[in-house]
């Protein structure tokens, strides 16, 4: 599991402690959420899965006395059961209550990233830090997993492929966690996102522009808890004028040829048969 941690120091601005992720794929949702508030995005595609968990508050403060945040970017190209367990522990903790929150994760990360160590990692940020950063995050997630209650396994779940649900609804949240599990296991693909700004309608508009399945938790009351999102409309292209003309000309040529063969190339009739 590749691990990237974004945070800042007292003076140093927000940057990754280790290497920088190859793409900032989470920006696809930047108009639909505040990354300065807890946001959770999981994406499953042909090459693997990736997760972005933003704005985990730390006990550290910057020079302006602002609480420093930490964001995690995790990804993997293969299924590893232990990694999936760690991610599910994070997602489960994040959505344990009606208001999405990193919960215990903040404290556990603080323990693994004390101020002095973090300043040092920031000062020398780069790929050399990757192993150490990943080890610390893994340790925090492992402790979170060990403290997490076991999944009841029997909860009601939403079966629709794409939907938007109220984050306050327990069934919606447990369905979201199940979708993430399926995505990690490669049984489902697409997006599972918890957003701070967008409502169901905004998510629907976003979904209409893309091809992948999407499940979204939104800060909005939704009658019944959730709504199904319509799949992207498939536009059937009408054949163009060129195609129609090509077919017409080809048909005419074929008919012409058949007529010519019938009238000009008369069959040879044996003389004795007349």
């Amino acid at each position: 599991m590749r691990t990237h941690v974004l945070t800042r120091g007292v003076g140093a601005d927000y940057r990754f402690l280790g290497s920088v992720p190859a793409t900032r794929w989470w920006q696809e949702f930047r108009q639909l959420t505040s990354f300065e508030r807890p946001t959770l995005l999981v994406h499953r595609h042909a090459e693997g899965w990736e997760l972005y968990a933003s704005a985990v508050p730390t006990e550290r403060k910057d020079r302006m006395e602002t609480v420093i945040r930490m964001s995690l970017v995790l990804s993997a190209s293969e299924f590893v059961e232990e990694d999936a367990d760690l991610v599910l522990a994070l997602v489960g903790e994040w959505l344990a209550g009606a208001e999405p929150s990193p919960g215990r994760l903040g404290t556990l990360l603080d323990e693994r990233f004390p101020a002095e160590d973090t300043e040092e990692l920031l000062a020398g940020s780069g790929p050399d830090n990757d192993e150490e950063v990943a080890g610390r995050v893994r340790a925090a997630l492992a402790q979170l997993r060990d403290e997490s209650p076991a999944d009841d396994g029997e909860a009601e779940t939403i079966l629709a492929e794409s939907w938007a649900g109220a984050v306050t609804d327990a069934v919606v949240r447990s369905s979201f966690v199940r979708r993430v599990r399926s995505m990690l296991n490669a049984d489902a693909c697409g997006w599972a996102v918890q957003l701070t700004l967008a409502g169901a309608e905004d998510v629907g508009a976003h979904h209409a522009q893309q091809d992948e399945p999407l499940v979204a938790l939104v800060n909005e009351r939704i009658p019944g808890g959730w709504i199904e999102l319509a799949p992207k409309a498939v536009r059937r292209r009408r054949p163009g004028t060129v195609v129609i003309w090509t077919i017409a000309v080809a048909t005419a040529i074929v008919i012409g040829l058949i007529t010519w063969v019938v009238h000009v190339w008369q069959p040879v009739v044996p003389a004795g048969s007349r």
Binding site: L6, Y14, R24, E36, M64, E65, T66
Partner: peptide, 11 residues
């Protein structure tokens, strides 16, 4: 505290 407002992480 002017710093109590969260900074901006992404555009």
């Amino acid at each position: 505290n002017p710093g109590a407002l969260r900074g901006t992480d992404d555009a």
